[in-house]
Design a protein around this nucleic acid. Structure first.
Lengths: 120, 120
DNA sequence: TGATTATTTGAACAATTGTTCAAATATAAT
DNA sequence: ATTATATTTGAACAATTGTTCAAATAATCA
């Protein structure tokens, strides 16, 4: 997203080297951190959190999801593509319709943990 | 972020009204959903997840946080402002330095739940 | 076959994001 | 007072996001 001209990034002097070393050492890998924020990104949009909530309750076709959210079908379909790419949802076709459902064990726990946070 | 010209949004016909009604009824409020995705947004950036992880281990000054992340001090300070505004971190001044620490019980559980997800 | 319905897709666009750079504060040391 | 150090702040900017619109598929029906 930014420019990252890789300049004066970290000629930054450490104040407490021991602490810094310890934290650096225990820090999860960049790869893990990247994946972690990626999964949180999915939940960082109200339309997507609503879709995930809805699908945690019922298997639904695109049309009914759009109806529940109050969004256009196209917008919902775009969001579903993101969820599909992240393998959070699966789908099956029935006649003209496509039915989506959750395809991830953990995502619901994440959702509920977040809701707890919101509600204090 | 978008335009939302509020057009043909939901002349969308419902296929299974019973399901749609049931899900709509149990759906958390728009306010809750907004707050929920807002808290997930905070974790949707690797720099911020790293800061949160670091502060879960140690109280740290801005300089040392920058050192741990390998980011500029300015970038870190901007991110800390976001975390401050969300009341996820608190700080105290000591001489010229400002020490930050976590100020939220739940955020760590959210982080760990997410990490579990990432690591399958 | 052609018409209808459900969904997907891609381009366009405004809004938002996260970083950099430079300048402003704040605090301590000389 | 002046200097040095630590942090914050605001403007600028490129990248990304999420929606709309129009057109493309897919599947069923007359």
């Amino acid at each position: 997203m930014p420019k990252n001209r890789e300049q004066d990034v970290c000629e930054v002097k450490s104040v407490d080297k021991a602490k810094v070393m310890a934290v650096k050492k225990s820090m999860p890998s960049d790869r893990d951190m990247h994946n972690l924020s990626e999964i949180f990104s999915v939940l960082a949009d109200p339309a997507r959190t609503k879709i995930i909530y809805a699908l945690s309750k019922e298997e639904l076709c695109v049309c009914d999801i759009a109806n529940i959210l109050g969004n256009s079908i196209s917008a919902v379909s775009h969001q579903l593509r993101i969820l599909r790419n992240m393998r959070l949802v699966k789908f099956r076709k029935e006649a003209k319709r496509v039915y989506y459902s959750l395809d991830d064990r953990h995502i619901n726990r994440l959702f509920n943990e977040g809701l707890k946070h919101v509600r204090e």
